[in-house]
Design a protein around this nucleic acid. Structure first.
Length: 801
DNA sequence: CTCCATCTTCGA
DNA sequence: CGAAGATGGAGT
């Protein structure tokens, strides 16, 4: 008897189902294996979460497992426990928690197929043709041939049957290899039996006799003996060797990396290292907040702690925020630990991810470097987990299961009794507050590792520029600086924070801005494709030649996309060589690496990009960083806007002058007096923290309060508003008077994909009843509201509001 | 009464 | 989530 969580995300089936284990699988099934089980009228994938001898389910209802998909369990006990915890803490289904821990290659692919049940001659001509001589074809094929009507009548007659087959999305890659017989005499016999005119065959067998028992790819043999594959085939048929399949890994690394050795540490680094090593050795689950200014050498500390973990036979997980960072970052880890490193990021194919995952699970590697989901790396003897740039919002998954990698890391550290390092130059207020309360242990690096001084930061007031008649995106100071660097042949990074402010199309006669027809947001102009795109739903349309409202021809592009800036740079500085890095230029696989490599090889003077270039860049020739508009992130309707801006400005500034040449930073803004702008000038984290904490206290936001966000959407505005109101009423009724309830209010983007969005915010300090109340709300929604087309989501600890 | 479209239910 | 029964309105 096996308890199985089935692969169906729905409320009524979010619990284990009991299945009989067929005789032939008795000895094989294990907790954590995937199985194929009959569920309702179809087969689905499921995970065995428990094995037991008894079941409360009546015997006549019990079905048997149809197929065992894994000989070895793919989920560890730790993962099963963690999944339970996640369902409770993120209010998701257990199946979603389990699925998110596995590489997508192991997820199920359901394919509708049509099975032939009678002699094909019974079928109408067209359908017969589709089947050919097969007995099963994909449903899609019938659909695309427009034969659904024919199919239906055949199904009625019982000529054909529909069935969904369960497959997995990706597979182990195998290559065919040749194993030469280990029997020397046998090879001699074969050689002698080969007729004299088959010269090539004899050559092959004679060569094989020199490599008794060895393994080669067919290609290797063909090349060394210089024969065609057919010859090798013939020899194998005679019994000189056998074909076999060998499992191989897809190699995600494009280039070799030179080795590196541990660097000498500064006193500060030494102190931090000793402290963390203490927890590695104890071992104990301590969470460290490593607060080190940009360029203070956090990574070297990570590397040396990991080395110790490896020496102790343990493994380490390193989380980095985005792919933009991974090439440079992973190279540092590969340089130190070589083949012991696995990478996990979105740039890899399904198959590559699966291979890396298997290397980790088998213990063939000791370090996993990757983005958010790498926190689930299936190590069994973890010695350390690191979250670099811990404040990054990408550590929070924005759809179910809405987990935060930081929380998962801490959970796993408690399970494995190992430390967690949260590293950042600009820690999230939450983490820093916890460090101050000694929930986390604070470690500080205040000096830059190579003793360079911090770059000089100049804040330019764009209002004055405007008064002085400069209407361009470049202030006088920035233009001068760019010209200067171009002359000196030094490099620059220009940073444009595009979020919420990109090039839109505006009619100068009536003021209409072209909006997406599905969402309440302006369309963004893309010069390369000459199209308008919606960044929320992906809708595209051609650039209009006249205003859609008043048909005036006076329409023009406003705002500043990276493309527009690029064009402007070329106009102002015709000799400048610009590399643009944004969503458009990095869509292709390996494009990040290519751009950064080119920039590193001095193939361009200016690197122009969006937030993806804010982090991790480390090139010696960068002496100028320009932030074209600091305001865009400052004015977002999010209580973390100031924090984000401070973090962003600090990070960007950190790109300049990391090596011998001194760096300069120019920040353009319409709010030069804002504390987030002012305090980022000298990376004054502590004053910023104090100031921002005051604001958070005043408005009852984290870290003083926890927040939970409830979003209600519907195609109809009134329905969305009404049910958001109902949700609010329910919360008011059930929660204590201690909680702050805000809403319902329209979401900052009030319509996405033709659905109107309303939200309610819960602020609370201690509310033991909260999870239960939210579960009840979700229950009401699932049993009642969902029928009316309402969609409701709950996010405990949302990263964007 | 038949046919199809949509809603509802249920899953071991 | 998806299959199949239940429901219901339009067409024969």
């Amino acid at each position: 008897m096996a308890q199985v969580i089935v692969d169906v995300s729905a409320y009524p089936v979010d619990r284990p189902f009991d299945y009989k284990v067929p005789e032939e699988l008795q000895e094989l099934v294990e907790v954590g294996c995937r199985v194929k089980v009959p569920f309702g009228k179809r087969n689905v994938l499921g995970f065995i979460t428990a094995l037991q001898s008894e079941s409360d389910v009546p015997k006549d209802k019990l079905k048997s497992i149809a197929e065992l998909l894994d000989i070895e369990p793919i989920l560890t006990n730790e993962m099963l426990e963690l999944a339970k915890w996640m369902t409770d803490h993120t209010l998701c289904y257990e199946i979603d928690a389990l699925q998110v821990m596995l590489p997508s290659a192991l997820r199920a692919k359901y394919e509708k197929t049509i099975l032939l049940k009678v002699d094909p001659t019974y079928l109408p001509e067209e359908l017969q043709q589709l089947f050919g001589n097969k007995t099963a074809i994909p449903y899609k094929k019938v659909e695309s041939a427009n034969l659904l009507r024919v199919l239906k009548s055949c199904m009625k007659n019982g000529y054909v049957e529909q069935k969904t087959v369960v497959k997995q999305q990706g597979n182990v890659k195998e290559v065919r290899k040749v194993k030469i017989s280990s029997n020397y005499e046998r090879l001699q016999e074969i050689s002698e039996s080969i007729p004299p005119r088959a010269k090539k065959q004899r050559q092959v067998v004679e060569w094989m006799a020199l490599h008794v028992g060895e393994e080669f790819t067919p290609n290797e043999i063909c090349e060394t003996v210089s024969v065609t594959p057919q010859v090798v085939n013939a020899v194998i048929e005679k019994g000189a060797a056998t074909y076999f399949q060998e499992e191989v890994y897809r190699d995600p690394f494009s280039k070799e990396v030179k080795g590196s050795i541990p660097l000498a540490l500064t006193d500060e680094q030494e102190v931090a290292l000793k402290e963390i090593l203490h927890s590695v050795k104890s071992p104990q689950a301590t969470t460290y907040l490593l607060h080190g200014i940009t360029g203070s050498g956090k990574t070297e500390v990570y590397l040396q702690v990991i080395q110790e973990a490896i020496n102790r036979g343990q493994e380490a997980i390193v989380l980095v925020p985005e792919i933009s960072l991974t090439p440079q970052m992973t190279e540092r880890f590969r340089a130190r630990f070589g083949d012991l490193v696995a990478v996990m990021h979105s740039g890899l194919s399904k198959g590559e991810k699966y291979d890396e995952w298997r290397k980790i699970g088998r213990g063939e590697v000791k370090v996993a470097v990757g983005a958010r989901s790498a926190v689930f790396a299936p190590f069994t003897n973890l010695g350390l987990i690191i979250l670099d740039e811990e404040h990054e919002s990408t550590y929070k998954q924005e759809d179910t299961p809405r987990y935060h990698a930081r929380d998962i890391a801490i959970w796993r550290s408690e399970y494995h009794h190992c430390p967690v390092i949260l590293g950042s130059a600009t820690p999230s207020l939450e983490s820093f507050a916890r460090a101050k309360k000694n929930v986390y242990t604070l470690l500080t690096l205040e000096k830059r590792a190579k003793q360079q001084s911090l770059p000089k930061v100049e804040v330019v007031d764009m209002r004055e520029e405007l008064h002085n008649g400069n209407r361009s995106m470049f202030s006088g100071a920035l233009m001068e600086a760019i010209e200067d660097r171009l002359k000196k042949k030094e490099q620059m990074v220009l940073f444009l924070n595009r979020r919420g402010f990109s090039s839109f199309v505006l009619c100068r006669d009536c003021g209409t801005v072209v909006q997406c027809k599905n969402c309440d947001i302006s369309m963004t102009y893309h010069r390369s494709s000459e199209k308008l795109k919606c960044h929320y739903c992906g809708y595209e349309e051609h650039v209009p030649t006249e205003c859609p409202e008043c048909h005036s021809e006076h329409i023009r592009f406003f705002g500043t996309g990276t493309q527009k800036i690029e064009a402007e740079i070329y106009k102002l500085f015709p000799e400048a060589r610009v590399l643009r890095m944004d969503v458009d230029t990095t869509r292709q696989k390996g494009a990040h690496e290519k751009i950064l490599e080119d920039f590193g090889n001095l193939k361009a003077d200016i690197l122009l990009g969006t937030q993806m270039i804010a982090k991790g860049l480390d090139f010696p020739k960068i002496t100028l960083v320009g932030v074209l508009s600091a305001d865009t992130s400052l004015n977002l309707p999010d209580f973390r806007a100031a924090e984000r801006t401070f973090q962003l400005l600090t990070q960007v500034s950190g790109r300049a002058g990391r090596h011998d040449l001194p760096g300069e930073v120019i920040v353009q803004t319409y709010s030069p007096e804002h504390y987030a702008v002012q305090l980022s000038k000298e990376q004054q984290y502590a004053p910023f923290y104090d100031q921002e904490m005051m604001m958070r206290h005043q408005f009852a936001y984290p870290p003083y309060y926890f927040v939970a966000l409830i979003q209600v959407t519907h195609e109809d505005v009134l329905m969305a508003a009404e049910y958001a109101g109902k949700a609010m009423d329910f919360l008011k009724l059930k929660l204590s008077s201690q909680v702050g309830l805000i809403g319902p209010t329209p979401a900052s983007i009030s319509r996405v994909q033709n659905r109107y969005r309303y939200q309610c915010l819960i602020k609370y300090k201690k509310e033991p009843n909260l999870t239960e109340t939210l579960k009840q709300l979700i229950r009401i929604y699932r049993t009642d509201w969902i029928k009316k087309g309402i969609q409701l989501t709950v996010d405990l600890d949302p990263s964007v509001i």
